[in-house]
């Protein structure tokens, strides 16, 4: 059962002819060429494929693409503006919160949502918020510190 769907991704309307059994992750990576979203486990357990759907962090590997029509989808590719990194991106780079970089896109989008909802979360809240995003490289300390640093800069 193939159908043409229109997705609003990073503010642009994109058409894709897809089967209804394709996940949002597969459509983003394979049909729309947005490979910044990563497949770490394909089962919703690692957080690497997180995108924002109507502002809510969502495991794109557990989401049928067809159900995302009419919703706003944001991927890592639009976190920075054309010539300026998002403060979280700056902080992740400066605090050593990125090593292999594979969990980074999902981690950043979750962190962005956290700070959008609460600009001044305490350490415990930061930790709880990123608990669904597995990072094998960093031991999380520098990721937490990077998010704290952005929170501290925010008036």
């Amino acid at each position: 059962m193939k159908q043409i769907i229109t997705l609003k991704v990073n503010g642009e309307l994109r058409d894709a002819a897809i089967s209804v059994n394709k996940t949002l992750l597969e459509v983003l990576r394979e049909d729309l060429g947005l490979t910044g979203t990563k497949k770490g486990c394909d089962h919703g357990e690692c957080g690497a494929c997180t995108v924002l759907v109507n502002g809510i962090p969502t495991s794109s590997c557990l989401t049928l693409a067809v159900t995302c029509q009419g919703k706003d989808i944001m991927t890592i590719e639009s976190l920075a503006s054309i010539d300026k990194l998002h403060p979280l991106q700056e902080a992740f780079i400066n605090h050593g919160a990125i090593q292999c970089g594979f969990c980074t896109p999902g981690m950043l989008l979750v962190a962005k949502t956290l700070l959008d909802e609460d600009p001044h979360p305490d350490r415990e809240k930061i930790t709880a918020s990123i608990a669904g995003n597995i990072c094998r490289c960093t031991g999380y300390v520098k990721i937490i510190e990077a998010i704290e640093a952005v929170a501290a800069q925010t008036p």
Partner: peptide, 9 residues
């Protein structure tokens, strides 16, 4: 329940 991401879904 599960993780914060899954709680959103």
């Amino acid at each position: 329940v599960a993780s914060p991401i899954l709680q959103g879904q």
